[in-house]
């Protein structure tokens, strides 16, 4: 439980199991609500299993596309940055956090996350490497969606 940054946080397995069960129950009844999808995704991106994290990312991407609520969109963008950083997809992580910082330049929480991502990259020996790959390009579409919602 001794975390240095939010990126090191991992979901308690019991919490993860609980979130999954609740989400499955909701899905069985029809379309799950944005709130319960987010709760599920949030738990999944803290899993030690990379496949769970990826499943969480898929949920967050879907929420970002479908949820009209502006306040919620910033949550999804933030946690997409967290999730990608946790599986070391740093270019995507930086892409998402920059989208948030473009909209809220003074957001301390977002700035702290960006620093954490950069220090994780330094730790992995990635600073200075050319990391702008296909990932950042793939983001462009989502950035547009996020920017439109700001009006």
């Amino acid at each position: 439980m001794d975390y240095g940054t939010i990126l090191e946080e991992r979901t308690n397995p019991a919490v993860l199991m609980n979130a999954r069960e609740q989400y499955m129950r909701q899905c069985a009844r029809g379309d799950p609500s944005a709130a319960s999808t987010f709760a599920f995704a949030h738990a999944m991106i803290g899993s030690k299993n990379k496949l769970d994290v990826k499943e969480g990312i898929v949920c967050l991407e879907k929420l970002l596309r479908d949820d009209e609520d502006r306040t919620s969109k910033r949550n999804y963008v933030y946690y997409l940055a967290v999730a990608h950083a946790r599986i070391k997809q740093y270019d995507l992580a930086l892409g998402y956090i920059d989208v948030l910082l473009d909209a809220e330049g003074d957001n301390q929480q977002a700035k702290t996350l960006k620093e954490s991502i950069k220090s994780a990259m330094t730790h992995d020996g990635l600073i200075g490497a050319a990391i702008v790959g296909g990932g950042a390009l793939a983001l462009a579409g989502l950035v547009a969606i996020f920017s439109m919602s700001r009006k």
Partner: peptide, 17 residues
Amino acid sequence: TAGQERFRAVTRSYYRG
């Protein structure tokens, strides 16, 4: 934790422990 009602499900998981 965020005070917003719609994320209560997430913030509730932090009470544990």
